[in-house]
Computed example of a mutant assay.
Amino acid sequence: MYHYIESGLPNVYLKNGYSIEVIDDEEYTSIDDMDGLHRVLARTIASKAMPLTNAEFKFLRIELNLSQRVLGKWFGVSEQTIARYEKGQSEIPRTTDAALRSLYMESIEQNNSVSYFLDLLANYEAAQAAQEILLEEVDRQWKLAG
């Protein structure tokens, strides 16, 4: 398995869909269908029943191709506030979490209401352990590993 830390997320592992090549004693990793991988990863993050981590918040913002400044304007906060969320220096408000998820799902045309995500977060149990996301490539498409 390949620990895909380049995503900016600490808990992503690839079961397959990658190759490692050694050139001049340096390892180079190539990942198949990076866009597809990131779409599945972002959709998985946006749909999870736990609050977003700072890294997940940043990942979704980047997948939306939004700057901290623009996202801050949309949420009515400064870009420094967005930066503090992403660095883990400030807690991400539940409504901001739900709004970012909703923006992402809207961007891929899987419209879920903000209340859907607020319900997900309200039902979250704090004692739940962090989970790893294991992905695999099947027939040239990324999906959650079964």
Rank of each mutant, 00 (worst) to 15 (best):
S113V: 09
E6S: 11
Q131L: 15
R94S: 14
G36F: 00
G88P: 11
N123L: 11
A122D: 10
P10L: 00
M34W: 11
W142T: 13
M50K: 06
L121N: 00
E21F: 06
S67E: 05
W74H: 14
N123H: 10
K87D: 13
K73T: 14
Q110V: 11
D139L: 15
E125F: 05
N16L: 07
R84Y: 07
E26A: 08
A98G: 05
Q141H: 07
Q68Y: 07
S113I: 01
V70G: 03
S115P: 09
R61K: 02
M50S: 03
N111T: 10
A49L: 15
D139W: 08
T44R: 01
S47V: 08
Y124I: 01
T96M: 09
G76T: 00
N111Y: 10
F59K: 00
E6T: 14
Q128W: 09
G72L: 03
L100M: 05
D32H: 12
G8M: 08
W142Y: 07
E132A: 13
E109K: 12
R101W: 04
N11E: 10
P93V: 06
I23P: 03
R69D: 12
Q110I: 10
Y4L: 14
D25A: 13
I82K: 00
I82L: 03
S107R: 05
Y2E: 06
N11Y: 03
I92C: 03
R43C: 13
E26S: 06
L144N: 04
S113E: 07
E63I: 05
A42V: 04
V114E: 01
V114S: 01
L103P: 01
E79L: 07
G72H: 04
E21R: 01
L60W: 01
E125K: 09
A55L: 10
H38G: 03
V12F: 00
R43T: 15
S30A: 10
A42N: 02
R43P: 14
V70W: 00
Y124T: 01
D25V: 06
S67D: 06
E26W: 10
L134H: 02
K48D: 09
D97H: 00
A42F: 02
I62P: 08
I31Y: 01
H38S: 09
G36L: 02
E26H: 05
V114L: 08
E136R: 06
S47I: 06
S47M: 12
Y28S: 02
S113L: 10
Y13P: 07
S107N: 05
R39I: 13
L120W: 02
I133E: 02
I133D: 01
S113F: 13
K58A: 10
S113Q: 01
K143G: 14
V40E: 00
S19K: 08
S115D: 12
